[in-house]
Amino acid sequence: MNLTLVTDHDTDQAVRAASPLAVRGMTVSYGQTPAIFSVDMTLRTGAMTAIVGPNGAGKSTLLKAALGVITPLAGLVTVFGGAMADMRDRIAYVPQRTSVDWDFPVRVIDVVMMGMYRRLGLLGRIRGRHRALARDCLDRVGMTHFAHRQIGQLSGGQQQRVFLARALAQQADIYVLDEPFAGVDAATEKAIVAVLQGLRDAGKTVLAVHHDLATVPDYFDDVVLLNTQVVAAGPVADTFTEENLNAAYGGRLTTARADPESVAG
C-alpha cells in the first residue's frame, strides 16, 4: 500500500516536471465559501488551453492563484517542474482589462516596456535593443502607429492588443491571459488569436480564460471545464462534450448558448 502511494507521488512528480504549468489541490476562499476547491490542472507544452465555466466559477481566481497574484489557502504550483518563484521569467501574464487604471499617465510604448521589468531590474538602463524589442512587439499586434498615445485614449480592442504586446515583450514560454477577448472588436479577436496560435506553433504554451463557448473548438487544443471544482479537463475533442458542459453549467447552458455574453466574467 505504502509502495503504491510513493509510486503515485513519483509519477505525478514526473508529470509535473514535464508540464510547463501544473497546479495541484488549489483552493482559494474569499470569506467563508471557497471560490475554487482542490483544483488540479496540467498544461501541455505547445498547446492552447481554455478555462471555461459559468459566472463565478473561479476562472480568474484560478489564474491569479496559479501566478501568485492572490494567496491561496492551499495548493501547489510548479513551472517546468520548478517553483514559481524561480520561474517567473518564463511566464507572461495579461490581466483582465478592468483591473487597470486607464487614467495613468503612461504611453503605449511605456506599457510595452513594462514587460521587460524583470530583465531591466530597478535601475537598468533602457537601451536601443530594448526599444527595438518594444517596437517589434507592437508591430506584431498591429499597434505601431499608436506607440506615443496615452493608453486610455485607445479603444478596448486596442488596449488589449497593447497588453498582448507587453506579454510578448516578456519573451516567456508560457502565456497566461485573463479574458483576452472580453469587450474587443472582431478584428482584434482575430489578430489576438493569430498571435497566440503563432506562439503555440513556435512551441510556447498558452492558457486563457475564455467565455465564448462557440469558439472554443476553433481556437483551443485543450479545455478545462471549471465550476469551483474541475468538472472535466483534456483535449477539446474528448472533453468539450454536451454532457460535460451540462455538468459544468448546470441548467444555465441553454441560456449560455443563446447569449454567449451572459456567461462572460
Binding site: K64, L67, G68, V69, A85, R88, I91, Y93, P95, Q96, S99, V100, D101, F104, V106, V111, M114, Y117, R118, R166
Partner: peptide, 10 residues
Amino acid sequence: FDEDFARGLG
C-alpha cells in the same frame, strides 16, 4: 498602473 501584473512579476 496595473497591480495584478506587478504581482505576477513577483
